[in-house]
Design a protein around this nucleic acid. Structure first.
Length: 286
DNA sequence: CACCCGTGGCT
DNA sequence: TAGCCAAGGGT
């Protein structure tokens, strides 16, 4: 069956990623998964190594100031993830005695841990045969099973779809979850799939249908230039570099439009990524 | 469910 | 070059 074929392919094709090595615990896996949310492997690797070296356990991370965490996060993007990761460390210490929980429901209750990440931790960190659905898996299933060129929006049936392909053997089912992700990351990629290198090309519904082009609605492109996300990033850049609180004037060069700049600073304060001192200066939260 | 939340490399 | 895309989550 296809599941077994994909597992066998993975044995010879898997990348040697640091968080996949033997002895890497569930906390280290959790940290990697949060960093990998919407961020490419190549950019995560060095930050993850440095991070785990500094803060190897939830207890270590829970004890440091948000400012340190935000700086260490660097330019991975979506810095709210860094804040939530620290909050998760606190929750693991307070609610789970410093041990990452091994059941999906408890994992999903942690800040910044959703449907995907909870199952990824249970599967990759604890060896459970959990179905795991990320963007790679949705694309593989779309092509292999449904014969579509692209995955649609995430849907509840995704978990059922991938579960149906998993090998029955428990250990192989666990391997299967990483294996499908790897297939999507290395072979069944978004832009130009390398079907010649695909272990299941002969059983792929999309190929059997003649590799039709995507005919549904185009996915909405997210603009970046000029958006609040860019402005927030600029403001945070200034504050990451400053090791003393700064006044509003110091933030002006970050963005010309005063209205937008002010709105974004407010939203950073609301998010807890920035705080204001008693004398009205701004800094990363101590 | 649609939208918001960063960043940088690749085509 | 401008857009596409990357191991999503929260609201």
């Amino acid at each position: 069956m296809v599941g077994d074929t994909i597992v066998d392919w993975y044995a010879g094709a898997a990348r040697d990623l640091p968080w996949r090595r033997p002895g890497v615990d569930a906390w280290a896996v959790l940290v990697s998964e949060v960093m990998l949310q919407q961020t490419p492997v190549a950019r995560v690797e060095p930050v993850w190594r440095e991070w785990m070296d500094r803060w190897p356990t939830p207890g270590h991370l829970a004890a440091v100031a948000p400012a340190d965490v935000i700086r260490a996060w660097g330019k991975l993007g979506y810095p709210r993830r860094a804040l939530r990761l620290r909050e998760t460390a606190v929750a693991v210490v307070e609610r789970h005695g410093g041990v990452v929980p091994d059941d999906v429901a408890a994992l999903e209750a942690l800040p910044g841990i959703g449907t995907y990440t909870a199952r990824a931790v249970a599967c990759f960190g604890y060896g459970q045969p959990q179905p795991v659905v990320d963007t790679n898996v949705r694309r593989v299933v779309a092509r292999l099973v449904h014969g579509w060129a692209e995955a649609g929006n995430a849907r509840a049936a995704d978990l059922t779809d991938i579960g149906a392909l998993a090998p029955t053997d428990t250990a192989r089912a666990t391997r299967f979850s990483v294996a499908v992700m790897e297939l999507g990351a290395l072979v069944c990629v978004a832009r130009t799939p390398r079907c010649g290198a695909c272990p299941v090309r002969d059983r792929c519904a999309w190929r059997l249908a003649g590799s039709p082009v995507h005919d549904g609605p185009a996915k909405r492109v997210q603009k970046f230039a000029g958006t609040d996300r860019q402005v927030r990033g600029r403001l945070l850049d200034v504050l990451r570099a400053a090791h003393e609180p700064v006044d509003a004037a110091t933030l002006e060069p970050a963005w010309d439009d005063a209205i937008q700049r002010s709105r974004c600073l407010d939203s950073l304060l609301t998010d807890g990524l920035v705080e204001q001192t008693a004398d009205g200066l701004f800094r990363l939260p101590a």
